[in-house]
Design a protein around this nucleic acid. Structure first.
Length: 417
RNA sequence: GUGGAUGUAGCUCAGUGGUUAGAGCACCAGGUUGUGGCCCUGGGGGUCGGGGGUUCAAAUCCCCUCAUUCACCCCA
């Protein structure tokens, strides 16, 4: 099929494309104010980057990675997420040797070979930020606040933040073993997925959605109870900072995430009307080191632009055009063309008919386009040099010299919003 | 990867074995002499997702396939 887009991709048509750009602009504005300049990263990377950081045994790498050998024999992958590439760029460009922390934002498409459904695509767009070189809880809190700020600017209500800590390289291995021992006798009663998770990633059994498993795991040891002193303090401080600002946060002891690089803080921002999260993130203190850099604490989030757009009621910038120039006869068409060019150069969003349509049809087109003003040009106007400017909303007409049309419209239109 | 639902005009859908497949909206043109929105008239537009099968006859029944969609998994 020549006229079918690949599965899981979408075409963004106007006016949705306008909303899309508006959302991007607002995100960039928030990033500017909060101090997260943009980094522009490649859409593909060495596949190994994701295998080593996101994790070999995660779904994202194991079954969702778009990977391919290029003509030079390099094994590449379309990026499935933004954090690993950002960390790679941070190291590769020596940002770790400059002043810390380094705060960055990014916007762009991510690719995952998943089965599409509501709010889930094979190509989706993430708005994300990262802080490198900051171990303090204030950094975690700021990152979460930025996420909420972006969503609030979109006019979203019914937001909630889920927060948890999954411990660090020091305390997590012990917890993992504790959990595994605890799980062992229950295995026969758990679902097939959980039985396989037991071996690969026992933490994931905690957020199984199957009721039987939920009940069986209700009394499971919690990551929060197994945190080392440092992790517990860190977590309490993050929580305290957020609550100190009046941001309601729900502790979800069963929130674990499907990317291996997370440590300590993990969080998701949810909306009442959408099942999947709008935004997910957390701390990843070991990631830069895995890539061969110095131990570097870091924290960040990724936000699903399409998901936000599905919920946002905000409109795109008004695209209402200013002027339609209509030709009353064939002789006037070249003049209409020239005047349209002139009006556009003067900053007026201007439309005209390329040719062939009757005056009536042109007026109809003008009306449909939603222009504010129309002007008809024919032999009469060309001779007198005076045309009638019509307000398409009120129907009111006024005379204006053709030479000064742009100015006359500028006055009547008022300041551009 | 698992399970369910659905694919007919640009859009929303009707048509479930029988002539040239329909409606509303949208689109184009006209309703005389230079003016939009309402109304009226006319017109263009469909490989009935694709392929195979059953039948005298298939949009309609069967199989396969592709796609969409919902849930699960996972995630943004």
């Amino acid at each position: 099929m020549l006229t079918a887009r690949p599965r899981g991709t979408t075409d963004i048509l106007p006016p949705r494309s306008e909303q899309w750009r508006t959302l991007e602009e607002r995100f960039r504005e928030v990033c500017r104010i909060w101090g997260y300049p943009e980094i522009i990263l490649p859409l593909f990377e060495h596949a190994e980057l994701f295998q080593r950081t996101v994790g070999e045994a995660t779904d994202i790498v194991e079954k969702e990675l778009y990977s391919f050998p290029d003509r030079g024999g390099r094994l590449l992958a379309l990026r499935p997420e933004g954090t690993a590439p950002a960390a790679r760029a941070y190291l590769e460009n020596g940002l770790h040797k400059g002043p810390q922390p380094v705060k960055l934002s990014y916007v762009g498409p991510m690719f995952r070979y998943e089965r599409p459904q509501a709010g889930r695509y094979r190509q989706h767009t993430q708005l994300g930020i990262e802080v490198f070189g900051a171990a303090e809880p204030a950094a975690d809190a700021e990152v979460i606040l930025v996420a909420v700020e972006v969503l609030r600017r979109e006019g979203l209500e019914g937001l909630s933040v889920r927060l948890n800590s999954i411990g660090c390289a020091g305390c997590r291995p012990a917890y993992r073993e504790t959990l595994r021992h605890w799980l062992h006798p229950l295995l026969p009663g758990l679902c097939a997925d959980c039985r396989s998770r037991y071996g690969r990633n026992p933490l994931r059994t905690l957020d199984c959605k199957i009721e039987r498993c939920r009940q069986a795991l209700g009394q499971a040891p919690r990551t929060l109870d197994a945190l080392c002193d440092e992790c517990r303090e860190h977590f309490q401080e993050v929580q305290g900072r957020l609550e100190g600002l009046g941001l309601p946060v729900t502790i979800h002891p069963d929130l674990v995430r499907g990317l291996d690089y997370y440590t300590r803080t993990v969080f998701e921002v949810m909306h009442d009307d959408l099942e999947p999260s709008l935004c997910g993130g957390g701390r990843y203190d070991g990631l830069v080191e895995v890539l061969g850099g110095p131990p570097t604490p870091a924290v960040g989030f990724g936000m699903g632009l399409e998901r936000v757009l599905d919920l946002a009621k905000t409109q795109g910038r008004s695209t209402r055009p200013d002027l339609f120039l209509a030709a009353a006869d064939e002789e006037a068409r070249p003049r209409v063309f020239a005047l349209a060019v002139e009006a556009r150069r003067a900053g007026l969003a201007t439309h005209f008919d390329f040719g062939g349509r009757s005056l009536k049809a042109q007026m109809k087109a003008a009306s449909r386009l939603g222009v504010r003003f129309s002007v008809v040009l024919g032999q009469r106007e060309l001779e007198t040099g005076v045309a009638v400017l019509k307000n398409m909303d009120s129907g009111a007409e006024s005379e204006a010299p053709i030479a000064g049309l742009a100015g006359a419209i500028g006055e009547q239109r008022g300041p551009t919003s």
